[in-house]
């Protein structure tokens, strides 16, 4: 059955008629062409599809779209501002922190969520914890940790 979904995605008000049973992942990708959110498992195990909903991190593949209607949703497409890379993105790029890049949109969302929520600089352990739900088979974790640690240091000074 179709129903009107309304909410905010990347700062834009969206209203769209979609199937009631649709997951947020398919809503984003198939209905809104926001293809930056990736599909890795569709079972909540890999974090490739992670998005931020009202400041919390969710795996969009196991989130029904209508469960988060009315919420504020940020996807990777909403991370860079005015074509400028977000500092997290820039840090990951400068450190060469990724290879195939497939996990990176989800990884960026997880990092942003954790960094926004924390009042202090994240420790190495906290950075690892923040991305512990994001699988990267290319194995870039240590480089991501390095990138974010560097970024925080630069910010501090």
């Amino acid at each position: 059955m179709q129903k009107i979904w309304s909410g905010t995605i990347n700062g834009k008000k969206i209203e769209k008629s979609i199937e009631q049973s649709m997951t947020l992942l398919h809503f984003l990708r198939d209905e809104l062409s926001l293809l930056g959110t990736k599909v890795g498992c569709e079972s909540g195990d890999c974090g490739a599809c992670a998005v931020i909903i009202d400041k919390k991190l969710f795996n969009s593949c196991i989130t029904p779209a209508f469960a988060v209607a009315g919420c504020e949703i940020t996807t990777i497409e909403g991370l860079s501002e005015n074509g400028q890379l977000h500092p997290i993105q820039k840090a990951l790029l400068d450190t060469g922190s990724f290879q195939c890049g497939y996990c990176m949109p989800g990884m960026c969302m997880a990092l942003k969520c954790a960094m926004d929520a924390a009042e202090h600089n994240l420790t190495e352990e906290e950075i690892r914890e923040a991305i512990s739900g994001n699988l990267c088979r290319c194995g870039s974790y240590s480089l991501v940790v390095e990138a974010i640690s560097l970024l925080q240091e630069v910010k501090k000074s």
């Binding site: 990708r29 930056g36 890379l85 790029l93 960026c108």
Partner: peptide, 21 residues
Amino acid sequence: KKIWKLDGEEGIQGQTRYGTD
């Protein structure tokens, strides 16, 4: 020298199109 990945800027913004996309 340390060089950015060429496709990196697109990739990190979720603009890269993989087969699944």
